[in-house]
Design a protein around this nucleic acid. Sequence first.
DNA 1: CGGTATCCTCTACGATACTG
DNA 2: CAGTATCGTAGAGGATACCG
Lengths: 121, 121
Amino acid sequence: MKAKVEVDSKGHKSVINACAEPCAIEKGMRILGAKWKGSIIYHLKDGPVRFNDLSRMLGGASKKMVDQRLKELESENMVIRRVLNDKPLAVSYELTEFGKSALSILDDLRKWSENNDIQLK
Amino acid sequence: MKAKVEVDSKGHKSVINACAEPCAIEKGMRILGAKWKGSIIYHLKDGPVRFNDLSRMLGGASKKMVDQRLKELESENMVIRRVLNDKPLAVSYELTEFGKSALSILDDLRKWSENNDIQLK
DNA sequence: CGGTATCCTCTACGATACTG
DNA sequence: CAGTATCGTAGAGGATACCG
């Protein structure tokens, strides 16, 4: 992540090395930053939640999106899918330990966002 | 952010209230999570950087993207644009105090990402 | 209930070329 | 050097309907 910097006679800095590609920040954002993904993780913080409940918590997200994001999160070992019973069908999603390890970041983000009353364009 | 939860006779939880829309997390992500945006902020952490240097640091980002993101960040009061001199033209970008307030989140994200060697699909 | 399947639109992003 | 303009494409994401 450290870029080598060269300073010329006039005090101008030039960057020699680019950061590793993709940057760790970009990589992390691909996991937590995709639309609805951070919110899904955050809403699982208090324990397992069922599919439709999760959709409702997210308000604007379509089932398709929620489903897609949950599958990604599952393949990334962030959440565990669990079938509770068959009739009526019930499925819950729960954070893994790895999933929980992202919670503090998301909570900081939430606080930052709330404290600064972000304006969306 | 708190959702009301109802528990029925079988112990199933149902969510009554959705979170405020858009959730603070989603809002925050729109500022920090857009492609390259977090990285740009992070690369400004040690002080002003010039346009082309920033592009180079980001490696894969086109000038158009860097330019666009910088304009957004400027309008969000995250960075300040400063013309250093006219010949040759030199412009630097610097974090505002508000911009700096996001650094700890981004640094935590970076550490989390590095420690867990995220696999991108 | 917990998804799939289909369609469709919109815009994000890259490539390239050009300008003051 | 620091952008702007133009073009083109992929795919992200919404709406809707259907399925086991």
